[in-house]
Write a protein that binds this DNA or RNA. Structure first.
Lengths: 111, 111
DNA sequence: AATAAGTACCTTGCAATACAATGTAGAAGT
DNA sequence: ACTTCTACATTGTATTGCAAGGTACTTATT
């Protein structure tokens, strides 16, 4: 399980990416995150993030009926959301490089 | 600059790795982190982390004179510290895989 | 001797965020 | 009736990075 502290700042970008790939809704996002290997991400985590994304106008919602349960809110990226997702990617690359730089240069690769 | 939110949960492990590679002190750690590409990490960030590491007995300190300035506190890993560093590495790999899984599978690789 | 700059330590208070816990509600099966 | 799965949302807590502030020693400059 990925530590919750390590996920801080990551999930927002990951959810943007998921929405970018396909118009989707919160409940499905939680299932997708699990499939991608993030482990079980609580709904108490996901819904506040999506509310934040809406408030900052990175995503927009459309309510549609479901054939099995309550209505769903489908999200899609706005222009701002696309820019923000790009910035996240750049940021992630920076972090990945810095950490791998630190861990690889020191020898001790056990993988 | 790596976003401060993304650094959460990362720095502790990174500082453990730096101390693992060489007995060193806080001020030098801050310089090393910058060299590795983490950007300028505030001392208000580093000192609390090291205090935490000491309290949880992951590192131990030895005070020594410096030839240029106040005395330095040199840190080294304890057994618990070595275990904790290993766990961090495993954790990091998991996160890296999950995120790259998400970002690569979706096409859209611009690098 | 007074000032500045670099080294080196530490603490306080704030803001952001993941998440457990809790609640609402519809649909479908038993 | 009941349970389960779907699907939404809120509240309170703990953790953590960091700006801002403080102490103190050494060396170089004025």
């Amino acid at each position: 399980m990925i530590s919750s502290q390590m996920l801080k700042g990551m999930l927002e970008g990951c959810i943007l990416e998921i929405i970018c790939k396909q118009e989707t809704y919160a409940y499905e996002i939680s299932k997708l995150l699990e499939e991608y290997g993030f482990g079980k991400i609580s709904e108490g985590t996901i819904y506040p993030i999506i509310l934040r994304l809406q408030k900052s106008e990175l995503v927009k919602a459309t309510v549609r009926d479901s054939n099995s349960g309550p209505k769903r809110k489908y999200y899609r990226l706005t222009e701002k959301g696309i820019v923000s997702l790009y910035e996240f990617k750049v940021n992630w690359k920076e972090l990945e490089h810095a950490i791998n730089n630190l861990f690889i240069k020191g020898g001790n690769e056990d993988e």
